[in-house]
Computed example of a mutant assay.
Amino acid sequence: MDIYDVLIRDFPFLLKGLGVAIALLFCLLVIGLFLGLAICLIQLYGPRSRFVQWPLIVYERIFRGIPIIIMLFIFFYGLSGVYDISAFAAAVLAMGLRSAAYQSQIFRSAFQSVPEGQMLAARAMGMSSSKAIAYIVLPQAIRHAIGPWTNEFSSQIKETSLAYVIGVVELTRQAHYIITSTQGNVLIVFAVVALLYFILNRAGNSALYAFERKLSVPGFEK
């Protein structure tokens, strides 16, 4: 059978693998978003005690300093010895916790870019610290964070392909199945896979750029 006939026949499997990659991407980004934002808020506005701040620093340094493939092996093969965890769940945890370490720094820079005087002015008007953060600082910080967060989105799309090393049947592993069944045609199959990743990346970036423009305030960026 011709390779093009094989690709047409097996293209639904590639789309299924792409769906798994998108689900993995969504889950890890949600974990990274909420955990990263929480870490950022604690680091900036939480207690200055070393017992609070140092664990966050250690967490951030560890997850930013270890290759993601090693993290995947630790979370899958390590945790499976004490808990029956699926490959997908292990990938979500490893990548989500790593993304949180990076996103915490994205949000931290965004919050620090908001002039400190705005927080002081809000407090002088009688707002509590939590309300000042929620209604004054956070909306401005989110605008500043969208650009760097877009880079994190693109980076994580590409890193989902590494989940195949622990058995997640995403797009890259589906491509390996097709190559194995056809005994070759690596270039053509992975060219199609690369195109699918590129389309997903561009679609996501375009949506985030549109969101950034929608939230923009004339003169705010300056």
Rank of each mutant, 00 (worst) to 15 (best):
A163R: 02
V165N: 15
L120E: 15
I57K: 15
L72R: 05
E170I: 11
E170Y: 12
I66H: 01
I62V: 07
G167F: 10
H144E: 13
Q103D: 00
A90P: 11
F73N: 07
H176P: 02
Y177D: 11
Q156G: 08
I57N: 15
Y59R: 04
F111V: 02
S128N: 06
S130C: 09
V169L: 14
Q156S: 15
Y59D: 07
H144M: 08
E170G: 13
G81H: 13
F153Q: 04
S161G: 11
A87P: 10
H144I: 04
M127E: 00
S104K: 14
F153W: 14
S80L: 10
M125N: 06
R108T: 10
E116A: 08
A101E: 08
G147E: 11
A134C: 07
E60R: 03
I136A: 02
L120H: 12
L79E: 00
A132H: 06
A90C: 14
S104E: 14
V168T: 14
K131Y: 05
S80D: 14
Q156A: 11
S154T: 04
R98Y: 09
L93A: 15
M71R: 02
I146L: 01
Y83S: 15
A132F: 04
I70A: 15
Q105D: 13
G147D: 11
V137K: 01
Q174H: 10
E170R: 14
I142Y: 13
P115D: 09
H144G: 02
R123M: 03
F153M: 10
I178W: 08
G117L: 05
A132G: 00
P148F: 02
I57V: 14
V114G: 06
G167L: 13
E152M: 12
A90D: 15
S129Q: 10
I57G: 09
M119L: 07
Q105T: 13
R173K: 15
I68T: 01
V114P: 07
P148I: 01
S161T: 06
G167Y: 11
Q103H: 06
Q140P: 00
S130F: 10
S109H: 06
V114K: 06
R123K: 08
Y177S: 12
I85G: 02
E159Q: 13
K158P: 04
G147K: 05
S154G: 01
M125A: 06
Q140L: 08
H144Y: 11
V82R: 11
T172H: 07
L171W: 10
R143H: 05
M127D: 00
G117H: 06
P115A: 11
F75C: 05
G96H: 03
F88A: 12
L162Y: 07
T150M: 05
L162V: 08
R108C: 12
Y83G: 13
A89P: 06
S99V: 09
A124Y: 01
I157H: 05
A163G: 03
S86I: 13
M125V: 09
S109K: 03
F76Q: 05
Y77D: 09
G167M: 14
M127N: 00
R143G: 09
T150R: 06
M119G: 08
S80W: 05
G117C: 00
Y102L: 07
T172Q: 12
F75V: 00
T180D: 11
Q174M: 15
I166F: 10
A122I: 03
L79M: 06
Y164D: 01
G117P: 01
G78A: 02
I157W: 04
L93T: 08
Q118N: 10
I146K: 01
S99Y: 07
